[in-house]
């Protein structure tokens, strides 16, 4: 029996049973859910300063998990620990465990290069490679590492279709990567990440540099991708978290305050800080 199915009644409100939120998450659908990644007691440091303290939560396979919280709460740091991008900054360190399919990503069995191919990342600001064409940008995950996909044309088309960009760029695949608009450039970055067939896609505030229309497109895209990829999205936009995610983690000052299914967090937060944040009293 899964821990997730344990429901505890809330005193005085028998019509609104509350779930145990930690760990792991609720089963919101009938299909069995497995945790693609598990974060265990993760603490991340810049020098001796811990920006993330003792965070534990699961990332359920083929769902969207949103990470919300005010600026400086450690959201970005947390997702950067999932593909070991945190450690490329000098002076940083990590303790705790992060499991990908049961393997510790900080352990000996997975080197960071291999890990980053399985856990892709999209950044805050669209960062296509300006010296490469649109096509070469999509293939960058292969070409940078000196490998070639078996059928490059199919890889390019497939990745661009999944990123909902194919129709807009199919006639100018040779155009420089820097020639696209902001929203297109971000979808190109998503296509680039998808082209190496990652299991998990981390998105660090992917819409913060985009206008509302481009944002809506990306959110739509996130919905579609969730059927094939596990997504973790950092956002400071609570409406966005509510729109796109199934699970939400609320971080505050480096602590995981609350984690659970998104509907529950937004309608019945269990911690007063969560309630204050989502009702806009701070942050």
């Amino acid at each position: 029996m899964s821990l997730a199915s344990i429901l505890v009644p809330v005193p005085g409100r028998s019509d609104a049973p509350r779930q145990v939120v930690t760990p792991p998450p609720a089963m919101t659908k009938d299909a069995p859910r497995t945790a693609k990644m598990v974060i265990e007691s993760l603490t991340a440091y810049y020098g001796s300063h811990a920006v993330l303290r003792n965070v534990s939560l699961p990332v359920v396979e083929r769902t969207v998990t949103a990470v919300i919280g005010p600026s400086g709460c450690g959201k970005s740091t947390m997702v950067r620990c999932l593909n070991r991008m945190h450690e490329i900054i000098p002076g940083t360190s990590v303790s705790g465990r992060v499991l990908l399919d049961g393997l510790d990503v900080y352990g000996r069995h997975l080197d960071p290069i291999e890990l980053r191919r399985r856990v892709g990342m999209v950044f805050q600001k669209p960062n296509p490679f300006p010296t490469m064409s649109v096509r070469d940008n999509v293939l960058a995950g292969w070409s940078l590492t000196g490998t070639k996909p078996p059928n490059a044309d199919d890889v390019v088309e497939n990745a661009l279709r999944r990123a909902a960009l194919w129709d807009e760029v199919k006639d100018r695949l040779k155009a420089p990567g820097g020639s696209l608009s902001g929203g297109q450039a971000q979808r190109l970055c998503i296509a680039r990440a998808l082209a190496v067939q990652p299991d998990v896609l981390l998105m660090d505030e992917p819409c913060s540099a985009l206008d509302p229309i481009a944002t809506a497109r990306i959110e739509e895209l996130i919905h579609e991708l969730a059927s094939t990829v596990t997504i973790v999205i950092v956002t400071h936009n609570m409406q966005q978290a509510a729109r796109v995610s199934e699970f939400t983690a609320f971080l505050y000052m480096g602590d995981l305050v609350e984690f659970g299914d998104t509907a529950g967090i937004f309608t019945r937060p269990s911690d007063p800080r969560t309630e204050d944040y989502i009702t806009g009293r701070f942050g």
Binding site: N127, P128, F129, M132, A140, L144, T145, G146
Partner: peptide
């Protein structure tokens, strides 16, 4: 960061993105 997150080693990051840029 873009190149590193795609699984490039430091040498590949320099050769593939920093120098062309």
């Amino acid at each position: 960061e873009a190149a590193t997150a795609l699984g490039a080693t430091r040498f590949e990051v320099i050769r593939g993105t920093v120098l062309p840029y």
